[in-house]
Design a protein around this nucleic acid. Structure first.
Lengths: 225, 225
DNA sequence: CCGTATCCAGGAAGATACTG
DNA sequence: CAGTATCTTCCTGGATACGG
């Protein structure tokens, strides 16, 4: 655990645990539901597995995280104490979206974007059966340029190589615009109108695409004037 | 500023600034109102002035803190962005008081206790004129054992040497009990009944003392069963 | 009163490779 | 899939002393 502040103040005691690098981002991941070690790694790609492991142990020892093994599958979940960190994470998200507007190019990670999108699909609006969305970001290096979201009845998969299925719609845009949309700083229709984004595919699907994603809670936070 | 997480997530962007050691505790201090450099030092006694200075610069550059010089007096205040960190601090306080119950002896700092008490005096209930409360903590080393709170019309002073004024009431207790009361884990009356605390002085004042302090918001937070 | 200058030690975090 | 092991670097944070 982080070293002590030698203060009895609850804020200080909380921060002894939570002010260590990455800790609250792990909680953020787990707020979305139980996760396996490698799920967490996908949401925290710049974190080394050693450090992730250490942090999970610290959080477990602190009573925030529970490590469960169910028929050979390891799951990390939030305990009651962990669940109650949700207001902290939400308050931070609201503050962050309002006051930290400028993103550096380093912050624009397509891997994270797709990972986040994949868990915010509104199944009820996507056609039944298998639907594949292709994303193309021509402005970034080829290695990360092409992505596929494979939506089937039970699950949603993220691929960075062509899964081979028929593509329903292709979204072509620069990465920053797509992230601006995701964060709620830009609407799909404004991006389309400004030619910052194009959707290829059958008319009906093209119109429907934006509705396939649930709005991130961030997106609706009012911004400072 | 802290190093980047390379994520566009608002929580990550917020934590780049806020997860550095001491940063949110400075915000906590400033949430109570504008403060001078040495006021902050009193609330953060284990922090070196170098580091406090550096953090204040970081927070100023981040647009969270404003440094004002008014007729030769330096004041640090929260900007609008800083004010909006209040929900974060409050969420952390609620979580901390509920889930980080055990305090080490290292966390029991009488200096901090008195500093915190001095800014939570309910003037309307304290008799007019000058009122002096003496605190005695026989269980701790002599150097920190005796404290005086000098309440006058305009201000409240903390002294660790006898200010020489007439003492209205003397509170004698162990430090941990006083902090338990302050955090809302123990009531004045329970402490009195258990002989963990005694108040000396005129009957009427003795009864009134607990009411001279405003209840800390922490104190009323319901605890987990 | 309000900080800055300097120095030092320790450990945190990153990178990489490897194992059951 | 779920982590350890190891190594190295850097940088934070702490302590202390000093200046405007």
């Amino acid at each position: 655990m982080g070293s002590s502040y030698h203060q009895f103040c609850p804020v200080a005691k909380a921060m002894e645990l939570l002010d260590e690098r990455w800790t609250l981002l792990i909680v953020r991941e787990l707020v979305c539901g139980p996760a396996r070690f490698n799920d967490l790694r996908r949401g925290l790609p710049r974190m080394s597995p050693t450090l992730l492991s250490r942090r999970l142990n610290q959080l477990t020892n602190a009573g925030v995280v529970d490590r469960r093994t169910e028929n050979d599958e390891v799951r990390y979940t939030l305990t009651q104490a962990g669940q109650e960190l949700r207001p902290v994470v939400e308050a931070l998200a609201v503050w962050g979206i309002r006051w930290i507007g400028e993103l550096g190019d380093e912050d624009l990670d397509p891997k994270l974007l797709l990972w986040d999108m994949h868990r915010n699909i509104d199944r009820t609006t996507v056609p039944p059966g298998r639907t594949v969305i292709q994303f193309r970001f021509p402005d970034i290096p080829p290695a990360n340029r092409h992505w596929w979201l494979v939506i089937s009845g039970e699950e949603v998969d993220v691929c960075d190589t062509d899964p081979g299925h028929t593509v329903a719609v292709t979204v072509t845009t620069d990465l920053r615009s797509m992230i601006d949309i995701w964060r709620g700083n830009l609407t799909w229709s404004d991006a389309l109108r400004a030619n910052a984004l194009t959707v290829n595919g059958p008319e009906s699907l093209r119109r429907a695409v934006p509705g396939w994603f649930t709005l991130h809670p961030w997106a609706t936070v009012p911004r400072p004037t």
